[in-house]
Simulated assay, not measured.
Amino acid sequence: MLSIETANEDDLVQTADLHKRNLRLGLFPRLGRHFLRHYQESFLRSPYGIALVTRDEDDRISGALFGTTANAEHYRWVVRNCGWELAMAGGAALVTRPAVAIDFAGSRAGRYLRGIGRRLIPRSAVRGPQASSAPLPVLSHIVTRQDTRRSGIGRRLVERFRRLAGAEGADRAVLVTEAGGLGAPFFERIGCICEAERRDEDGHVLRQYRLTLDPIETHAPYDPSPRTHAGLLVDHDAARQRAGLVGAHPG
């Protein structure tokens, strides 16, 4: 029977391999499995991260999903708490991949540095619309083993993400996928709405989709102040219990 669980560190070897083999768009897969493990671990550690896996009856991971409940706060937390680890892993990968390093320097380095700088600014110093904006969840990555596709695993992972992200108070999430890839038809089949198209640094056409979330209960106004990791895990567990998700196995 298929189970959907919160990922743990022991799962990252398999989930990084799934990511590397099946999600080749963008820079991160080109940095290799070691970097991907560090990157995926940031979703496990962040109080704003969601990391899910599906296991089959042989206890093998058949799918994985990584996302956030509040994307800006997630990356602010990651820069402050995992930044050096990710920088070292990424730097080591670039040293052994000179072609990727040249491409990174020409197409992404400036944007990454500006983004890191913005996230080092204390939130209390942020002005403008971002200062009072509601949390925006993002479904960052979803991947399944090739031999398990069209078996409902991806849909079940997305449904679990909708409940967990909705439990934090948001009513929608966004995701981005390649226009001509396998992701776009899947997301359209499950009801996602395409909001925009753009080209990335490598010239690929990307589509941004809106995913409606499942609010579980009435929430207090969004409080962007950092919470402890353990405290948020308690909140997440309570939300899962209210939704009947703890230990649940989809039929």
Rank of each mutant, 00 (worst) to 15 (best):
L44R: 12
L44E: 10
L44M: 15
L44W: 08
R45P: 09
R45V: 14
R45W: 10
R45D: 15
R45H: 14
R45T: 11
S46F: 01
S46K: 05
S46G: 05
P47G: 13
P47W: 06
P47S: 07
P47N: 10
Y48N: 13
Y48C: 08
G49T: 00
G49D: 10
G49I: 01
I50A: 11
I50W: 00
I50M: 05
I50H: 08
A51S: 11
A51L: 06
A51H: 04
A51G: 11
A51W: 05
L52K: 02
L52S: 06
V53I: 00
V53L: 03
V53N: 04
V53A: 01
T54Y: 01
R55H: 04
R55V: 08
R55P: 08
R55D: 12
D56I: 09
D56A: 05
D56F: 00
D56W: 00
D56K: 04
D58Q: 15
D58G: 13
D58K: 08
D58Y: 13
D58I: 03
D58L: 08
D58A: 08
D59M: 03
D59W: 04
D59R: 00
D59Q: 00
R60M: 08
R60L: 12
I61G: 06
I61A: 06
I61C: 10
I61Y: 03
S62C: 09
S62L: 13
S62A: 11
S62T: 15
G63M: 09
G63Q: 03
G63I: 01
G63R: 04
G63L: 06
A64M: 14
A64D: 04
L65M: 08
L65F: 00
L65A: 02
L65R: 11
L65V: 06
L65G: 07
L65Q: 10
F66I: 07
F66P: 01
F66A: 02
G67W: 00
G67C: 01
G67Q: 07
G67F: 01
G67D: 05
G67K: 00
T68F: 03
T68E: 09
T68I: 02
T69Y: 05
T69G: 01
T69A: 00
A70E: 01
A70R: 02
A70W: 00
N71V: 04
N71H: 15
N71R: 05
N71G: 09
N71S: 14
A72N: 12
A72D: 14
A72M: 10
A72R: 06
A72E: 15
E73C: 03
E73R: 07
E73Q: 03
E73D: 06
H74F: 10
H74Q: 09
H74C: 11
H74M: 07
H74G: 07
H74S: 07
Y75A: 13
Y75D: 15
Y75W: 09
Y75V: 07
R76F: 12
R76N: 15
R76K: 13
R76A: 13
W77T: 03
W77E: 13
V78M: 10
V78S: 13
V78F: 06
V78E: 15
V78Y: 06
V79S: 12
V79M: 12
V79E: 12
V79L: 11
V79T: 15
V79Y: 09
V79I: 12
V79P: 15
R80G: 13
N81R: 10
N81H: 13
N81V: 06
N81W: 04
